[in-house]
Amino acid sequence: MILVTGATGFVGQALVRHLVARRRPIRLLLRPGRKSLQLPKGVPIDAVVCDLGDERALAAALRGVTHIIHLIGAERESSRASFERVDVRATRALAEAAAKAGVRRLVYLSHLGANRASAFPLLKAKGIAEALVINSGVPYTILRSAVTYGPGDQFITGLATLLRRTPGFFLMPGDGEMLLQPLWIGDLVEALDIALEYPPLENQVISIGGPEYLSLRQIVGQIMDTLHLKRWVINIPLGSLKILALILDQWRGFPMSIYWLDYLSSDRTTSLDSLPRVFGIIPARFHQQITFLTRSLNPSAGWLGTQEAL
Protein backbone atom coordinates (compact mmCIF):
# COMPACT_ATOMS: atom_id res chain seq x y z
CA MET A 1 0.00 0.00 0.00
CA ILE A 2 1.32 3.46 -1.00
CA LEU A 3 0.41 6.46 1.14
CA VAL A 4 0.33 9.80 -0.71
CA THR A 5 0.36 13.12 1.13
CA GLY A 6 -0.46 16.37 -0.65
CA ALA A 7 -2.77 14.50 -3.02
CA THR A 8 -4.98 17.55 -3.61
CA GLY A 9 -2.10 19.60 -5.05
CA PHE A 10 -0.88 20.03 -8.60
CA VAL A 11 1.66 17.20 -8.43
CA GLY A 12 -0.53 15.09 -6.14
CA GLN A 13 -3.52 14.99 -8.48
CA ALA A 14 -1.33 14.04 -11.45
CA LEU A 15 0.41 11.37 -9.35
CA VAL A 16 -2.88 9.86 -8.18
CA ARG A 17 -4.10 9.56 -11.76
CA HIS A 18 -0.80 7.94 -12.73
CA LEU A 19 -0.82 5.42 -9.87
CA VAL A 20 -4.46 4.52 -10.45
CA ALA A 21 -3.73 3.92 -14.14
CA ARG A 22 -0.90 1.59 -13.07
CA ARG A 23 -3.26 -0.29 -10.71
CA ARG A 24 -1.12 0.60 -7.71
CA PRO A 25 -2.84 0.30 -4.32
CA ILE A 26 -2.91 3.77 -2.79
CA ARG A 27 -4.19 5.56 0.27
CA LEU A 28 -4.54 9.32 0.36
CA LEU A 29 -3.76 11.29 3.49
CA LEU A 30 -5.97 14.38 3.43
CA ARG A 31 -5.75 17.26 5.85
CA PRO A 32 -9.03 18.32 7.53
CA GLY A 33 -10.85 21.09 5.72
CA ARG A 34 -9.12 20.67 2.37
CA LYS A 35 -11.03 20.71 -0.89
CA SER A 36 -12.18 17.38 -2.29
CA LEU A 37 -9.88 15.59 -4.70
CA GLN A 38 -11.29 14.84 -8.12
CA LEU A 39 -10.82 11.08 -8.01
CA PRO A 40 -11.08 8.75 -11.02
CA LYS A 41 -14.57 7.31 -11.12
CA GLY A 42 -15.18 3.61 -10.59
CA VAL A 43 -11.81 2.97 -8.93
CA PRO A 44 -11.62 2.14 -5.20
CA ILE A 45 -9.12 4.40 -3.39
CA ASP A 46 -8.56 4.62 0.35
CA ALA A 47 -8.68 8.13 1.76
CA VAL A 48 -7.96 9.11 5.35
CA VAL A 49 -8.63 12.54 6.83
CA CYS A 50 -5.87 13.10 9.33
CA ASP A 51 -4.00 16.00 10.89
CA LEU A 52 -0.30 15.15 10.76
CA GLY A 53 -0.01 16.48 14.29
CA ASP A 54 -2.32 13.73 15.58
CA GLU A 55 0.05 10.88 16.45
CA ARG A 56 -2.62 8.22 17.02
CA ALA A 57 -4.56 9.07 13.86
CA LEU A 58 -1.34 9.08 11.85
CA ALA A 59 -0.36 5.66 13.18
CA ALA A 60 -3.78 4.34 12.15
CA ALA A 61 -3.42 5.89 8.67
CA LEU A 62 -0.09 4.09 8.22
CA ARG A 63 -1.50 0.67 9.08
CA GLY A 64 -0.65 -1.64 6.17
CA VAL A 65 1.37 1.05 4.36
CA THR A 66 4.70 -0.07 2.89
CA HIS A 67 5.69 3.03 0.90
CA ILE A 68 5.07 6.78 1.22
CA ILE A 69 5.24 9.59 -1.32
CA HIS A 70 5.39 12.84 0.63
CA LEU A 71 4.34 15.88 -1.43
CA ILE A 72 2.80 18.21 1.11
CA GLY A 73 4.11 21.78 1.15
CA ALA A 74 2.97 25.29 1.98
CA GLU A 75 4.38 27.38 -0.87
CA ARG A 76 1.07 27.63 -2.75
CA GLU A 77 -0.32 29.57 0.20
CA SER A 78 2.15 32.35 -0.66
CA SER A 79 2.45 35.03 2.03
CA ARG A 80 -0.01 33.04 4.19
CA ALA A 81 2.28 30.00 4.19
CA SER A 82 3.49 28.42 7.43
CA PHE A 83 6.59 26.44 6.48
CA GLU A 84 7.32 25.55 10.09
CA ARG A 85 3.91 23.90 10.49
CA VAL A 86 3.39 22.35 7.06
CA ASP A 87 6.85 21.53 5.72
CA VAL A 88 8.85 21.00 8.91
CA ARG A 89 6.59 19.77 11.72
CA ALA A 90 4.37 17.70 9.42
CA THR A 91 7.42 16.03 7.84
CA ARG A 92 8.89 15.31 11.26
CA ALA A 93 5.65 13.70 12.44
CA LEU A 94 5.28 11.64 9.26
CA ALA A 95 8.90 10.46 9.29
CA GLU A 96 8.70 9.41 12.95
CA ALA A 97 5.43 7.57 12.38
CA ALA A 98 6.86 5.88 9.26
CA ALA A 99 9.83 4.61 11.28
CA LYS A 100 7.52 3.12 13.91
CA ALA A 101 5.33 1.54 11.21
CA GLY A 102 8.28 -0.11 9.45
CA VAL A 103 7.73 1.69 6.14
CA ARG A 104 10.09 0.35 3.48
CA ARG A 105 10.63 3.56 1.48
CA LEU A 106 9.77 7.24 1.98
CA VAL A 107 9.95 9.31 -1.20
CA TYR A 108 10.10 13.05 -0.56
CA LEU A 109 9.65 15.71 -3.25
CA SER A 110 11.92 18.71 -2.67
CA HIS A 111 13.25 21.62 -4.76
CA LEU A 112 16.52 22.37 -6.50
CA GLY A 113 18.35 24.72 -4.15
CA ALA A 114 16.95 23.20 -0.95
CA ASN A 115 19.36 23.96 1.87
CA ARG A 116 18.72 24.26 5.60
CA ALA A 117 21.15 27.22 5.64
CA SER A 118 19.36 29.06 2.80
CA ALA A 119 18.35 32.67 3.31
CA PHE A 120 15.07 31.94 1.51
CA PRO A 121 12.24 30.56 3.70
CA LEU A 122 10.95 27.99 1.22
CA LEU A 123 14.34 26.53 0.35
CA LYS A 124 15.37 26.55 4.01
CA ALA A 125 12.20 24.66 5.00
CA LYS A 126 12.77 22.09 2.26
CA GLY A 127 16.37 21.61 3.43
CA ILE A 128 15.24 21.05 7.02
CA ALA A 129 12.56 18.61 5.87
CA GLU A 130 15.14 16.70 3.84
CA ALA A 131 17.33 16.33 6.93
CA LEU A 132 14.36 15.04 8.94
CA VAL A 133 13.69 12.38 6.30
CA ILE A 134 17.36 11.39 6.06
CA ASN A 135 17.73 11.07 9.85
CA SER A 136 14.45 9.23 10.40
CA GLY A 137 15.89 5.75 9.98
CA VAL A 138 13.41 5.00 7.18
CA PRO A 139 14.90 4.07 3.79
CA TYR A 140 14.35 7.15 1.66
CA THR A 141 14.66 8.72 -1.77
CA ILE A 142 14.63 12.51 -2.07
CA LEU A 143 13.95 14.06 -5.46
CA ARG A 144 15.04 17.67 -5.81
CA SER A 145 12.93 18.81 -8.72
CA ALA A 146 13.36 21.67 -11.15
CA VAL A 147 10.33 23.88 -11.79
CA THR A 148 7.50 21.57 -12.86
CA TYR A 149 4.77 22.58 -15.27
CA GLY A 150 1.50 21.23 -16.61
CA PRO A 151 -2.26 21.84 -16.30
CA GLY A 152 -2.90 23.38 -12.89
CA ASP A 153 0.70 24.38 -12.12
CA GLN A 154 1.39 27.70 -10.50
CA PHE A 155 4.56 28.90 -12.20
CA ILE A 156 4.12 28.53 -15.97
CA THR A 157 0.34 28.87 -15.84
CA GLY A 158 0.80 31.78 -13.43
CA LEU A 159 3.15 33.53 -15.86
CA ALA A 160 0.68 32.92 -18.69
CA THR A 161 -2.18 34.34 -16.61
CA LEU A 162 -0.17 37.45 -15.74
CA LEU A 163 0.73 37.93 -19.40
CA ARG A 164 -2.90 37.71 -20.43
CA ARG A 165 -4.20 39.98 -17.66
CA THR A 166 -1.65 42.80 -17.79
CA PRO A 167 -2.39 45.39 -20.49
CA GLY A 168 0.50 45.61 -22.95
CA PHE A 169 3.47 45.01 -20.62
CA PHE A 170 5.17 42.37 -18.46
CA LEU A 171 7.40 43.02 -15.44
CA MET A 172 10.46 40.81 -15.90
CA PRO A 173 12.22 39.83 -12.65
CA GLY A 174 15.81 41.10 -12.79
CA ASP A 175 17.42 40.77 -16.19
CA GLY A 176 15.44 37.62 -17.00
CA GLU A 177 18.61 35.66 -17.73
CA MET A 178 18.39 33.25 -14.77
CA LEU A 179 18.37 29.68 -16.10
CA LEU A 180 15.61 27.18 -15.35
CA GLN A 181 15.10 23.58 -16.43
CA PRO A 182 11.34 23.08 -16.88
CA LEU A 183 10.16 19.55 -16.09
CA TRP A 184 6.91 18.20 -17.52
CA ILE A 185 4.52 16.91 -14.84
CA GLY A 186 4.15 13.53 -16.56
CA ASP A 187 7.90 12.95 -16.35
CA LEU A 188 7.98 13.92 -12.68
CA VAL A 189 5.21 11.53 -11.60
CA GLU A 190 6.86 8.72 -13.57
CA ALA A 191 10.10 9.38 -11.67
CA LEU A 192 8.24 9.41 -8.33
CA ASP A 193 6.70 6.04 -9.16
CA ILE A 194 10.06 4.52 -10.10
CA ALA A 195 11.67 5.94 -6.94
CA LEU A 196 9.32 3.92 -4.74
CA GLU A 197 11.10 0.61 -5.21
CA TYR A 198 14.15 1.04 -7.45
CA PRO A 199 17.04 -0.35 -5.31
CA PRO A 200 19.84 1.96 -6.58
CA LEU A 201 17.83 4.98 -5.38
CA GLU A 202 17.56 3.87 -1.77
CA ASN A 203 18.98 6.49 0.61
CA GLN A 204 19.82 8.83 -2.27
CA VAL A 205 19.19 12.53 -2.93
CA ILE A 206 18.66 12.97 -6.66
CA SER A 207 18.35 16.26 -8.57
CA ILE A 208 16.13 16.08 -11.63
CA GLY A 209 15.05 18.48 -14.35
CA GLY A 210 13.94 18.74 -17.94
CA PRO A 211 16.08 18.22 -21.06
CA GLU A 212 17.08 21.86 -21.67
CA TYR A 213 18.22 25.01 -19.94
CA LEU A 214 15.99 27.99 -20.66
CA SER A 215 16.29 31.52 -19.36
CA LEU A 216 13.20 33.07 -17.82
CA ARG A 217 13.19 35.49 -20.76
CA GLN A 218 13.06 32.56 -23.21
CA ILE A 219 10.25 30.91 -21.23
CA VAL A 220 8.20 34.10 -21.23
CA GLY A 221 8.84 34.48 -24.95
CA GLN A 222 7.63 30.95 -25.67
CA ILE A 223 4.50 31.51 -23.58
CA MET A 224 3.73 34.69 -25.52
CA ASP A 225 4.28 32.91 -28.83
CA THR A 226 2.00 30.04 -27.78
CA LEU A 227 -0.79 32.40 -26.70
CA HIS A 228 -0.21 34.83 -29.59
CA LEU A 229 0.50 37.72 -27.23
CA LYS A 230 2.70 40.76 -27.63
CA ARG A 231 3.90 42.47 -24.47
CA TRP A 232 6.49 45.14 -23.73
CA VAL A 233 8.93 43.49 -21.32
CA ILE A 234 10.11 45.81 -18.54
CA ASN A 235 13.01 44.69 -16.36
CA ILE A 236 12.51 45.39 -12.66
CA PRO A 237 14.81 44.51 -9.73
CA LEU A 238 13.77 41.38 -7.84
CA GLY A 239 13.53 43.27 -4.55
CA SER A 240 11.15 45.87 -5.98
CA LEU A 241 9.07 43.20 -7.68
CA LYS A 242 8.78 41.27 -4.44
CA ILE A 243 7.36 44.32 -2.66
CA LEU A 244 4.81 44.72 -5.46
CA ALA A 245 4.01 40.99 -5.34
CA LEU A 246 3.41 41.20 -1.58
CA ILE A 247 0.87 43.96 -2.16
CA LEU A 248 -0.89 42.12 -4.99
CA ASP A 249 -0.82 38.87 -3.01
CA GLN A 250 -3.44 40.29 -0.67
CA TRP A 251 -5.93 39.29 -3.36
CA ARG A 252 -6.32 35.54 -3.00
CA GLY A 253 -6.82 35.13 -6.73
CA PHE A 254 -3.29 36.31 -7.53
CA PRO A 255 -1.92 33.48 -9.71
CA MET A 256 1.62 33.09 -8.36
CA SER A 257 3.29 32.56 -5.01
CA ILE A 258 5.70 35.26 -3.88
CA TYR A 259 8.19 32.49 -3.14
CA TRP A 260 8.78 31.95 -6.85
CA LEU A 261 10.73 35.22 -6.77
CA ASP A 262 13.13 33.63 -4.26
CA TYR A 263 13.43 30.64 -6.59
CA LEU A 264 14.42 33.03 -9.40
CA SER A 265 17.26 34.57 -7.38
CA SER A 266 19.78 32.33 -9.19
CA ASP A 267 20.02 29.59 -11.80
CA ARG A 268 18.02 26.48 -10.82
CA THR A 269 19.45 23.69 -12.94
CA THR A 270 20.99 20.25 -12.68
CA SER A 271 22.46 17.70 -15.10
CA LEU A 272 20.53 17.51 -18.35
CA ASP A 273 20.76 13.71 -18.43
CA SER A 274 19.48 13.05 -14.90
CA LEU A 275 16.14 11.53 -15.95
CA PRO A 276 17.47 9.34 -18.81
CA ARG A 277 20.53 8.21 -16.85
CA VAL A 278 18.90 7.49 -13.50
CA PHE A 279 15.29 6.66 -14.40
CA GLY A 280 15.38 5.67 -18.06
CA ILE A 281 12.94 8.50 -18.87
CA ILE A 282 13.30 10.62 -22.01
CA PRO A 283 11.88 13.93 -20.79
CA ALA A 284 9.57 16.10 -22.88
CA ARG A 285 10.90 19.37 -24.24
CA PHE A 286 9.20 22.56 -23.16
CA HIS A 287 7.94 23.58 -26.61
CA GLN A 288 6.34 20.14 -27.06
CA GLN A 289 4.09 20.43 -24.00
CA ILE A 290 3.49 24.17 -23.53
CA THR A 291 0.46 23.99 -25.81
CA PHE A 292 -1.49 22.81 -22.76
CA LEU A 293 -1.87 26.52 -21.98
CA THR A 294 -4.20 27.01 -24.93
CA ARG A 295 -6.53 24.39 -23.47
CA SER A 296 -6.33 25.17 -19.75
CA LEU A 297 -6.57 28.96 -19.55
CA ASN A 298 -10.04 30.42 -19.18
CA PRO A 299 -10.23 34.03 -20.40
CA SER A 300 -13.20 34.78 -18.14
CA ALA A 301 -11.73 33.46 -14.88
CA GLY A 302 -10.32 36.72 -13.48
CA TRP A 303 -6.77 36.41 -12.11
CA LEU A 304 -6.98 32.64 -12.02
CA GLY A 305 -6.87 31.27 -15.55
CA THR A 306 -7.18 27.69 -14.31
CA GLN A 307 -8.88 25.87 -11.49
CA GLU A 308 -6.58 26.24 -8.51
CA ALA A 309 -5.27 22.93 -7.17
CA LEU A 310 -4.46 23.29 -3.51
Rank of each mutant, 00 (worst) to 15 (best):
D273I: 09
K126N: 12
Y213I: 03
V278F: 01
S240Y: 05
A129S: 15
A309P: 02
Q204M: 13
Y108A: 02
A57V: 03
A90C: 13
L3T: 12
A59R: 15
Q222C: 01
L264F: 10
V49Q: 11
P25W: 06
R295I: 03
A7M: 04
L229E: 11
L244I: 15
G113W: 11
R27Y: 04
G12Y: 08
L143S: 05
L264R: 05
V189W: 01
T148N: 11
A14I: 00
D225A: 15
S215K: 13
I247Y: 13
R34I: 04
T291P: 00
R89S: 02
P25N: 12
P299T: 03
A47G: 06
S136T: 01
Q288D: 15
A129T: 11
L112E: 07
S266E: 12
G152P: 12
P182Q: 11
N115T: 01
V107A: 11
S36R: 15
G53W: 02
A61W: 02
L201T: 09
W260P: 00
L248A: 14
G9N: 11
D262P: 06
L229F: 09
A309L: 15
G176N: 07
A117Q: 13
L162D: 12
R217L: 09
E308K: 13
G150R: 10
L244A: 15
L106F: 07
G42H: 10
G174N: 09
Q13Y: 00
S240A: 13
L109A: 05
Q288E: 15
R89F: 01
P151T: 07
V233R: 14
I72S: 14
Q38V: 03
L123Y: 12
I134E: 13
K41A: 14
P173K: 06
L179R: 15
A81L: 05
G210E: 00
L28S: 02
L272F: 01
G113F: 12
L196S: 03
I156K: 06
G186V: 02
I156V: 15
Q154P: 01
P25H: 12
Q289R: 15
M178K: 14
I258Q: 10
M1S: 10
V107P: 03
R22T: 07
I26D: 06
R104G: 08
V16T: 08
H287K: 14
G302S: 10
L196N: 00
D54L: 02
L15N: 00
L122R: 10
R31P: 03
A131G: 11
D51G: 09
V220R: 09
N298I: 08
R104H: 08
E130D: 14
R34N: 06
S79R: 14
M224D: 02
Q154L: 11
L261D: 02
G6E: 07
L19Y: 01
V49Y: 02
L37K: 05
R268P: 02
L162M: 15
G73T: 04
Y213T: 03
N298A: 04
G53L: 03
W184A: 06
G209I: 08
R22C: 04
I68E: 00
R27C: 07
